[in-house]
Amino acid sequence: MTTLYLGGYTTDQPPATSGLARVSWTHDGFGEVERLEGPGDPSWLVRVSDAELYAVGEGDPGKVTRVRPGEGVVAEASAGGQGTAHLALSPDRRWLVASNYVAGSVALVAVGADGSLELVDELGFEGRGPHERQDAPHAHQAVFLDDERLLVCDLGTDEVHEVSVGDGRLRHTGDIDLPRGSGPRHLALAPGRDDLLWVVGELDQTVHTVRRGDGGWTVAGTVSTAPEGPGPGETTAAGIVVSPDGSHVYVSTRGTDTVSVLAGGEDGTLTLRQQVVTGHWPRFIGWIPGEEGRHLLVAAEKEGSVDVWAVDEGLLEETGHSLAWSAPTWVG
């Protein structure tokens, strides 16, 4: 049996005061959902263990919280800016970096030896893009490369920012330029490599292969997650995960309500291999812990469901296992 944690926009549904819950999973399906004490509307979680989680909430300012299931919030710090959408933990577990979408900034939160949390620095970005949603920077995700270097997807400026962490300070050290109007939302690193990653373009429904050479990072290829065109309403790409062996990249697209299965070549170039239809608005996708590369979770925010897909030689197959949970934004 595996314990999964859920985050979502549920505090506007009386009598809920927390958007945090947990549920058991076996290959026979899901157990009963248990709502937990925790923060309101946790849009992103970082799972440290069964006994410890970190979460962010999209307030003004946003908050970073440390949660012990069964006890609730045991530590809290400001995320500095508004609209906190993502949280990343450094490999050495000394730092948390919160991405503030509305504020266009990232915040550095120190994790104390006693488990306390403290906001120690915030770094804002500048710029804009051609799309109507790109009137200002919009930091959407931070990914650590190692204990002191990270990459930040900025949907508002069509850049992935290179940032360093040292002595409790955030420093903007460079930028990776993405195609104009693409709106980089999330990225995923190639397993076992430090010269290859893939970036989701939320606004133009694309995935970009980005490679690092002697001249730095450059876009080496682009594929569409909506080859037949956008859906009937708003259409935006969302989540991305990579198989443990790096052979396949999976990307969700809201509006078309699909997950694209992209086969990766040795040089990282992608080819669309399969598309499956999911619940409405698949905001988040991720592996079941301990079953990476074998079972994929798809959280459909507007459908109010979490579905499990089996993976066979890279391709997705329906399992029929689905969990009803209002407005899910994270599961794992």
Rank of each mutant, 00 (worst) to 15 (best):
V48H: 01
V143K: 02
E126R: 13
S164V: 15
E317S: 07
V259N: 01
T3H: 09
L45I: 03
R254I: 04
T278M: 09
T271N: 07
V207G: 02
A237K: 01
R22G: 05
L203G: 04
A238I: 08
P191H: 08
T11C: 11
H131N: 07
S105Q: 08
A16P: 00
Q274C: 11
R68D: 04
V306Y: 10
G215A: 15
A226I: 14
W287I: 03
E301R: 11
A300H: 04
A237W: 02
P137A: 13
P179I: 10
Y54G: 04
H321G: 00
T17R: 10
G215W: 03
G112N: 06
T253N: 15
P232I: 00
T65K: 01
D28I: 07
Q205V: 05
T10P: 01
S322Y: 10
P61N: 09
G115P: 05
T2G: 03
E52T: 14
V102E: 12
L151V: 06
W330E: 03
W325F: 15
D28E: 11
T256P: 05
R93V: 14
R149L: 02
L296Q: 03
G7L: 03
V200S: 05
G183F: 02
L96N: 10
P191T: 08
G168M: 10
I288E: 04
S247E: 14
H138A: 12
E32H: 09
W95M: 15
L145V: 06
A51P: 00
A113R: 14
T209N: 07
L145W: 00
V102R: 12
G264L: 13
E122I: 12
